[in-house]
């Protein structure tokens, strides 16, 4: 990957990718792979599935590149593919059954990151809280889960979420409220 290509503007890269330049598309993938993966992780709650779905989203984006407007943000367009793939994935009955059996940790306590000597009691407490929060998020309706992930784990502002999802800011706030209310009910004994 040349330096010039790596430093090219997003518009330039999209135009080149539309002409079939795979190296230019590769630069776009490298720029957005982390965002695509982490948002998929928040939506489906599994490393393997998030990796598979985010990579599939890029492959589909390449196939559908002719329909992309170079003057609009690439990630906003890619995100539509990621979320649709994730939602379809979650709606698959077999996947849901497998997820119940194989659910592993996809959240991590911020306090545990970088901690050296940890108190076993505190660590167990954090682990329980993480597990409970994870289950509570997995039980949320997908639209509530989506805004919660974008707000809390992606750190987006309401305006950015609204633009990404193509919905009014008021709807973002309502969904976020509903998500937190549901989490409060699920975690009642811990709060």
């Amino acid at each position: 990957m040349t330096t010039a290509l790596a430093e090219a503007s997003e518009r330039d890269l999209v135009v080149r990718a539309q002409r079939g330049d795979r190296r230019a598309f590769g630069v776009l993938v490298t720029r957005y792979m982390r965002r695509a993966y982490y948002v998929a992780l928040g939506l489906v709650g599994s490393h393997d599935d998030a990796l598979d779905l985010s990579q599939e989203a890029f492959a589909r984006a390449f196939r559908a590149r002719a329909s992309l407007d170079p003057d609009r943000p690439f990630y906003a367009w890619l995100y539509q593919i990621v979320r649709r793939l994730c939602f379809n994935h979650l709606r698959d009955r077999k996947v849901r059954a497998r997820r119940l059996q194989e659910a592993g940790p996809w959240l991590v306590s911020q306090a545990a990151v970088g901690a050296k000597a940890s108190d076993p009691g505190l660590s167990a407490e954090r682990s329980e809280l993480r597990g409970r929060l994870q289950s509570a998020i997995e039980a949320l309706p997908e639209r509530e889960r989506e805004v919660l992930v974008l707000k809390e784990f992606e750190g987006l502002r309401y305006r950015e979420i609204a633009e990404l999802l193509g919905i009014p800011i008021g709807t973002v706030m309502s969904r976020l409220y509903a998500a937190r209310r549901d989490l409060a009910r699920s975690l009642e004994d811990l709060l």
């Binding site: 992780l41 959240l107 991590v108 306590s109 911020q110 306090a111 809280l129 809390e152 709060l191």
Partner: peptide, 11 residues
Amino acid sequence: VKEVTESMALR
């Protein structure tokens, strides 16, 4: 609830 979610991150 917000404090709890803020204390967690994606793995």
